[in-house]
Design a protein around this nucleic acid. Structure first.
Lengths: 113, 113
DNA sequence: GACCTTAGTAAGTAGTAGCTTACCGTTCGT
DNA sequence: ACGAACGGTAAGCTACTACTTACTAAGGTC
């Protein structure tokens, strides 16, 4: 199990974390830079970054005394695979349910089998 | 409000809710059926279903005294679009960061405004 | 009709997640 | 070497969230 999908979903469930994540999508930034664009304290940002990093949604690169955070495609890909797993099934289920609903609402038309 | 992606992510952040979601991916089920496959009480299941329904991840169809829950492609599609939005950027950022890392130490350039 | 099944809501509780301030180690500039 | 900027960690508080046990309503069966 490479890169737990649950961790990714839990990480992005928090609005502050989503903001940070979306910020880093524009360009890599240091912690102070991120903090300037977000209404929480710097330690809070650090804590969020730790969660995002554990979920492999972001990666760090040290640059002098700063640490430049950027997006890590790894976690993104993990969650993408997770949702792809359900996509076909969801469409099929929807089609079947829609069919059932249409029978109850419209007594006419379409008797396939 | 076209299917808030945040709501979808928050809904699937909970393990119990993910279990229910994945159960319904196999086949539509009633609340008691779901409860039988999950280690929580039936009211808890109802509460989770409400969250999933608000996020448009599941849909309900009344069938007599039961309510058959099934996947709703709407929420799934919303979150898929959300992640697609970052996919290209994440890959580009990753390539750039990998490039930066590959060069050794460069004391020049890069100045914060 | 009586009565059982199904399921959503109310009210209350325990645990955890996110925030803060304070502190400490590193790295750069002078 | 000293001081300042950067950033991660610790400790503590608050608020929310997931869970429970009632209770209530609606539909189906006899």
């Amino acid at each position: 199990m490479p890169t737990n999908q649950g961790a990714v979903l839990e990480a992005l469930a928090d609005p502050s974390r989503r903001s940070i994540f979306e910020l880093l999508a524009e360009r890599p930034m240091s912690v102070v830079e991120i903090t300037a664009s977000v209404p929480i304290s710097r330690p809070a940002v650090s804590q969020h970054l730790r969660v995002l990093k554990d979920a492999r949604l972001v990666a760090v690169r040290p640059s002098g005394t700063r640490r430049i955070y950027s997006l890590d495609p790894e976690g993104l890909d993990a969650v993408r695979r997770y949702f792809e797993r359900f996509w076909a099934g969801a469409l099929a289920a929807y089609a079947r349910e829609a069919d059932v609903s249409s029978r109850s609402h419209h007594p006419s038309e379409e008797k396939s089998s």
